[in-house]
């Protein structure tokens, strides 16, 4: 099996899992209420997030062939995504300004005059395409990292909070050890040691970001354990594992969602900083910003690279932050109004 087909399978699996979760969520009153409220309160932000997800999906499905690479054998066997195919063959030789018909410095005529909405970069690649492709990387960073960090944190936090004693001591020690190292430095050290692949970066981000949620889950479990309904379940002879799965974890799910949304923006911002240190993921907006920094000091300055990546990053984070705020408001037991 080739790499591209494997990645397609993973994408399909994730998509299926996401849809199933969504369907399960819709069946539950609480989550349905969240959907409805979100749609009412933050329609625009939701729309923006949905747009980013669509673009990312378009860039995730790839296959080989079907594109005329002009005799380039390597290019012939390169897997291309839907997005790549939409922009196929629109390469210039070097910089061009947005919607220009000539090169920026050389003033040579472009192959696609007026065809580059956001201009091209030093290698003549379409900036719009690069920006759109960044969406996939950003969602990958947020998604994959959360997928590693949140279950881990949930596992440790819940068991520490529920059983206490030695387990709690152990988890608490690991947590305070990790939390005491400066986050950015730890992140950098991890990436340097683990390598610079996407998975390694996500793993490093996960290691540095699970502690916060673990602490939260531990504290909440501690509280839930004392709740009367857990006591009633124990009086009914329900086993510990069943109590954890039926009572504790479902009552932490709102925290999982809040954490996921709030963590997301932090992760993407961290990756931007890593990119600037040369430790980021290939094709991320952070990397684009990092490269564009030098281009800004050229004369006349190349600004569209930076602007495109910056705006794309800012818009996504803004939308996510707004959604996150709303989700927290809807789910936070302190602000929630129980209808009576």
């Amino acid at each position: 099996m080739q790499l591209w087909s494997a990645s397609n399978l993973v994408v399909a699996g994730l998509l299926l899992a996401g849809l199933t979760l969504l369907l399960i969520g819709r069946r539950h009153r609480l989550w349905r209420e969240v959907f409805v409220q979100l749609r009412r309160r933050r329609p625009l932000a939701l729309l923006v997030v949905a747009g980013y997800v669509t673009v990312a999906l378009l860039d995730s499905v790839r296959w080989v062939g079907g594109v005329d690479a002009g005799g380039d054998v390597v290019a012939q066997h390169e897997a291309r995504s839907v997005l790549d195919r939409l922009f196929a063959g629109r390469r210039e030789r070097s910089y061009s300004a947005p919607l220009a018909d000539r090169e920026f410095y050389g003033h040579a005529p472009l192959r696609h005059p007026g065809g580059h909405l956001l201009g091209t970069d030093i290698l003549g690649r379409d900036v719009l395409l690069l920006t759109l492709k960044g969406a996939r990387v950003a969602l990958l960073i947020g998604g994959l990292t959360s997928l590693i960090a949140i279950p881990l944190a949930l596992l440790f936090g819940v068991s520490a909070g529920y059983w206490g004693r030695r387990i709690d001591d152990g988890v608490f020690f690991v947590m305070s050890t990790l939390a005491s190292m400066p986050t950015l430095l730890l992140l950098i050290a991890l990436v340097m040691v683990l390598g610079r692949s996407t998975v390694a970066v996500c793993l490093a981000l996960a290691v540095t970001s699970w502690v916060g949620f673990c602490r939260l889950a531990r504290g909440e479990t501690f509280k839930l354990r004392e709740m009367d309904y857990v006591q009633a379940a124990r009086a009914l002879g329900v086993s510990d594992l069943r109590i954890l799965l039926r009572h504790i974890v479902p009552n932490l799910m709102h925290l999982v969602v809040i954490t996921f949304v709030l963590m997301f923006s932090g992760l993407v911002l961290s990756e931007a900083i890593l990119s600037w240190l040369g430790l980021g993921i290939e094709g991320s907006w952070g990397q684009m910003i990092d490269q564009a920094r030098d281009e800004l000091s050229r004369d006349p300055a190349i600004w569209w690279n930076l602007a495109a990546a910056g705006v794309a990053l800012f818009t996504l984070l803004l939308a996510v932050n707004f959604v996150g705020d709303a989700v927290r408001d809807i789910l936070d037991p302190r602000t929630r109004r129980e209808p009576t």
Partner: peptide, 14 residues
């Protein structure tokens, strides 16, 4: 505040 939070430090600096 939310607007300010959504901007990367890199962009502030640059």
């Amino acid at each position: 505040a939310v607007l300010a939070m959504s901007l990367s430090v890199l962009l502030y600096i640059i």
